[in-house]
Design a binder for these strands. Sequence first.
DNA 1: ACAAAAGTGTTTCATATACACCCATGC
DNA 2: GCATGGGTGTATATGAAACACTTTTGT
Lengths: 245, 245
Amino acid sequence: MSTPKAPEGYDRHAFEPFAVTVDLAVLTVREERLHVLLVQRGQEPYAGEWALPGGFVLPRESAETAARRELAEETGLAGAIVEGLHLEQLRTYSDPDRDPRMRVVSVAFTALVPGLPEPRGGGDAAEARWLPYGSYGPLAFDHDRILADARERVGAKLEYSCLATAFCPPEFTLGELRQVYETVWGVELDRPNFRRKVLTTPGFVRAVEGPPRRTGGRGKPAALYRAGEATALHPPLLRPEGRST
Amino acid sequence: MSTPKAPEGYDRHAFEPFAVTVDLAVLTVREERLHVLLVQRGQEPYAGEWALPGGFVLPRESAETAARRELAEETGLAGAIVEGLHLEQLRTYSDPDRDPRMRVVSVAFTALVPGLPEPRGGGDAAEARWLPYGSYGPLAFDHDRILADARERVGAKLEYSCLATAFCPPEFTLGELRQVYETVWGVELDRPNFRRKVLTTPGFVRAVEGPPRRTGGRGKPAALYRAGEATALHPPLLRPEGRST
DNA sequence: ACAAAAGTGTTTCATATACACCCATGC
DNA sequence: GCATGGGTGTATATGAAACACTTTTGT
């Protein structure tokens, strides 16, 4: 980075400065569909349209800190939830014309959440909702692109990481875990083979002791598991065909 | 991103604005070692120390455009080389104290290059050199961290992408390609098995027609190949043990 | 009884791994 | 000849895919 000093005649107050923002693609699995956390914009531009939650990075904040703060502000999710969230930097969007008002560079993050705390609007967001992926008109700014990138990234990470457990509550059944893969990838997985794969991967999941079992309604009650210590998946769990959308 | 409007009383000229820069981790394989393109800083802070090439993003540039421009300026690499370069965004570094002068958010890129056009200093860089990875004192700013992230990312991408060919000249032998993997991963690979893997992966490499062969000095001359159309590696080529450094 | 989901077992096939071995060149 | 790296073949182990079957619940 950083030329040692700014270029000849450079004055950082001389031209329109950059604003730096964060955008969050918060994903969850609900009713066998991938859902996205969106907020409804209260002001122009794009007033009334859906957008990703996010906002300006403050002078003494890192991007990640700003992401957590904005998420808490705009969705009313409990502080404990937001703090414990698995946040991952996606990439940075810097097209000069991505915001009609001024030069805005935005650092996008992805978060995977389990249950479904119903959000509420707040801060600069008129409303906040979980919406099924793709069930909305075009989003504000370049947020459709960001969301598509996030989905692609998450789908890929499921293959070689244990990230899928981030979509599940603290204790979950193998059926719920499999549901995550099937929903994100849009395919059906063979139940027996999936079970074997998960259980034989060293630190992927840890069985919850005792006979506690949970019924998902009908069918045989399933054993409960917690996320294990492992973070990588060796060997990976590859999606059946090339890549889906 | 982008709260619909800035917070109450927000004036984007009122506080110290953000500067946005790019940093480049340009890697190559040379003499069986991973090398990094570094520049020597001419000014404070960190004057005289090694740093990644990079610099300020201009008002009408995207980060990627800025990255190519800065690379050309600071290293004197030919325009054609810089334009054709495989540039990939790594991540963005936004710690408020990462630059002692002011608030600087930096978007880091990774580039993999084949041959070794000797660079020369230019722009704000007193000197530019290829240095073996790790053969230098601490770099300026948080550049050690960026470089470590870049190396980790590249090592991981070799597993499931055809990126390794980016380290090779337009025509290369399978031995050279294998050398890339061995150097980046720091392991030895079985030659016959590597060959099979590469040749049976549909679009990884394309044989160069005719009997043209290249001698690497001693040993049997090797057939030449070009990079194929494929970009992903299915199934992946996993490194032997977990992960190396 | 039936549907639905969990859980176990088995068979088959693809792929990775570990070698042994021959080939063509420089010295 | 010998060292060096390219190229071929093969046997074995490991893991994935497909599928048949049993178990336990709700209705």
